[in-house]
């Protein structure tokens, strides 16, 4: 059956996204977790913009008003083996350098 797929990794169609919105998942953070958009293998590379645009359309707001969801590291899936073999003791300590504000959503 023909479908218009918004998120390929999780097989979410544009209709399903709209239905979830009308179900009361009216903001991106909830929509993302409820439908799965942006949580699959591509981690949003193929669907985050597209979903945010669709949400803006559904809500009748300007796209710039849709808050960006956190895009957390890494950028590509990394095997635990390759991570485990990285031997870089100086990785410690860079956090102390730059304390941040009290908003947990400010950075990845």
């Amino acid at each position: 059956m023909s479908k218009r797929i918004l998120c390929r990794c999780e097989d979410v169609t544009i209709e399903e996204f709209g239905k979830a919105y009308r179900d009361g998942f009216a903001e991106m953070e909830a929509l993302k977790r409820f439908t799965g958009v942006g949580t699959g293998f591509c981690q949003g590379k193929g669907c985050l913009c597209e979903s945010a645009l669709e949400l803006a359309r559904l809500r009748g707001i300007d796209p710039s008003q849709v808050p960006l969801t956190n895009i957390r590291p890494p950028i590509e899936p990394l095997t635990f083996e390759e991570l485990a073999s990285l031997d870089l003791p100086p990785l410690v300590g860079e956090m102390e350098a730059a304390p941040r504000g009290d908003d947990p959503e400010v950075g990845p």
Binding site: P73, L83, L88, M95, R100, G101, D103, P104
Partner: peptide, 14 residues
């Protein structure tokens, strides 16, 4: 709490 820092570190991943 003003120093809440929820950024990620490579150190954790390793």
């Amino acid at each position: 709490p003003v120093q809440f820092d929820t950024r990620s570190q490579l150190r954790f991943a390793v």
